[in-house]
């Protein structure tokens, strides 16, 4: 790990001033230190965002919904009573992230901006496309954990559990830079390799995530988060599904299905949402929605299993959210 200067940024404005191409933000540090130690990045300056106490908050009101400061830790999110009450699926998604120690350290903003866990990307000796190199090693290599959707010259999957859960609750993200503050739906924040192969989101090197906001769920909203992973601690998803269904009796008024670990971005499934919206939820409807969610999936040499796995998981999540036995 190359040496660097460590500077506190007590305000967003100060952070923006301090940032630049040779600087990196540090919040929880759980991903950043890994990248530094692996030699994937070697910034000259770390800008410590934790000095900015104003970004550490968690507020809920029925009229405004939930507002999360970017520095809220995952364990604060996991244990908060209002979150558990109004966004139980979010708490459930957080509970299966990494390990208790990581959740004590890691922040909401950091989780959304973490870099991919692709084992080729994480190996400093392999100059892959995501690092600006010529090849994606996953194409001819061990790609059992890689993308079945949305890949293009790079086949990482987005590692966040938080992102699919937040997107299913229609979260918006606010971030600030020299040009001022922007707010947009979280789904639009993430970009695939066809747009930018070396980054996973729109955040520029001199911008700072400030807040995530979620509307108050309508009455009858039920959410389910399902995650398959090799080990029950630490592991990123082999596959995950966040499902939010607004139910009116047995009929679904509105649905949001978002998949994790299938694509370089958290993967919304609007086609599945369409199948569900207005439909009476039955195992057959859930199956059709699952098929729709995976339409266009193109497995690689070792990850064909992810297609049936994803379909099974989507179907299961829908039925569980709707309270229908399979």
């Amino acid at each position: 790990m190359r040496n660097f200067e460590f500077v506190n940024a007590p305000t967003t404005e100060r952070a923006i001033e301090l940032l630049g191409p040779q600087a990196k933000l540090i919040a929880g540090g759980t991903d950043l230190l890994d990248e530094l130690k692996e030699g994937l990045i070697a910034p000259e300056r770390l800008v410590n965002l934790k000095a900015n106490r104003a970004l550490k908050y968690l507020r809920f009101s029925p009229s405004e919904g939930l507002r999360l400061g970017a520095l809220t830790t995952l364990s604060e999110l996991e244990t908060d009573r209002t979150v558990r009450e109004h966004y139980p699926m979010l708490a459930a998604a957080v509970r299966v992230i990494a390990s208790p120690q990581i959740r004590n350290m890691a922040t909401v903003g950091g989780n959304l901006c973490q870099r991919p866990r692709c084992w080729y990307y994480r190996n400093d000796a392999l100059h892959c496309t995501r690092k600006g190199g010529p090849i994606c090693y996953a194409v001819s290599g061990e790609n059992q954990y890689h993308a079945i959707l949305g890949g293009h010259l790079c086949f990482i999957v987005h590692p966040s559990d938080l992102a699919p859960a937040l997107m299913a609750y229609d979260a918006r993200i606010s971030y600030a830079g020299p040009g001022g503050r922007k707010t947009l739906p979280l789904g639009e924040f993430f970009v695939g390799p066809a747009v930018n192969i070396t980054r996973e989101n729109l955040l520029q090197p001199n911008e700072v995530v400030e807040e995530i906001s979620l509307p108050t769920p309508a009455a009858g909203t039920r959410g389910v988060y399902l995650k398959v992973r090799d080990r029950n601690t630490w592991d990123f998803a082999t596959l995950s599904v966040a499902a939010v269904l607004e139910m009116d009796g047995a009929t679904c008024r509105r649905a949001r299905i978002v998949l994790g670990a299938v694509a370089p971005v958290p993967w919304p499934a609007p086609d599945a949402d369409k199948v569900l919206t207005g439909a009476r939820i039955t195992p057959e409807v859930a199956r059709r929605a699952a098929d729709a969610a995976l339409r266009g999936a193109r497995p690689m040499s070792h990850n064909a299993h992810k297609v049936p796995l994803a379909k099974n998981l989507v179907r299961r999540a829908i039925l569980k959210a709707a309270g229908v036995s399979p």
Binding site: R117, W119, N123, A125, L126, G141, E142, R231, W234
Partner: peptide, 25 residues
Amino acid sequence: RVLNNASGRMVNANLHDYKIPTMKD
């Protein structure tokens, strides 16, 4: 142990990708 054919390198030489049972397994 997972070796990458294109480089001969082990790609899971850490305790996240090389998986040892945890308490919950």
